[in-house]
Nucleic acid binder design. Structure first.
Length: 151
DNA sequence: GCCAACGTTGGC
DNA sequence: GCCAACGTTGGC
């Protein structure tokens, strides 16, 4: 089993939205490196930290679980969708999604400042300067540590 | 294949 | 709103 950190802007889709929906399609990823993680490295049952980016403060806010195989991201073919990709063809879809299901919302959100202050989390990609990947692998130790901080 | 220009991300 | 960092695009 692997562990992940997945970023979402809360005014687009928040942990409360996932708590309400219980399951959602994690689509709209338009970066090849992140796409490859989703397509090739994720497995059903993997756990992920749900992180709010572009929020005040940016913070880890909960946990979700990868709950489907790699599926086609239908938004790439939807002309009205902001993630429409005119270069992607249905016979060879460029973009992939996964269903993720709600596990828990943290009692206390874990801000980026708190994560930076924790030496055990210093290797996380999300904290590296210039990192912009919306999906990044983390270790079990990092996952457990964030979980502990959010309790 | 190089690389300048451009667009996007996301913390601040 | 700014801008550093970085990915993508496209002319050559």
């Amino acid at each position: 089993m692997k562990y992940w950190l997945m970023k979402s802007e809360p005014f687009v889709y928040s942990i409360d939205d996932l708590a309400r929906d219980r399951i959602t399609s994690w689509d709209g990823v338009r970066n090849y490196q992140a796409r490859n993680f989703i397509r090739d490295d994720m497995q059903i049952g993997d756990m992920a930290i749900f992180y709010h980016s572009n929020s005040e403060p940016p913070a880890a806010v909960g946990v979700c679980r990868i709950s489907s195989e790699a599926i086609i991201d239908e938004t790439q073919f939807d002309h009205g969708n902001e993630n429409f990709d005119p270069r992607s063809k249905p016979e060879n879809p460029a973009w992939i999604a996964r269903e993720v299901s709600f596990v828990k919302k943290f009692r206390k959100q874990v801000s980026i400042d708190e994560m930076r202050a924790n030496k055990k989390l210093s290797e996380m990609l999300i904290l590296r300067k210039g990192n912009r990947l919306s999906v990044t692998p983390i270790t079990k130790q990092e996952f457990d540590e964030i979980l502990k901080m959010g309790e």
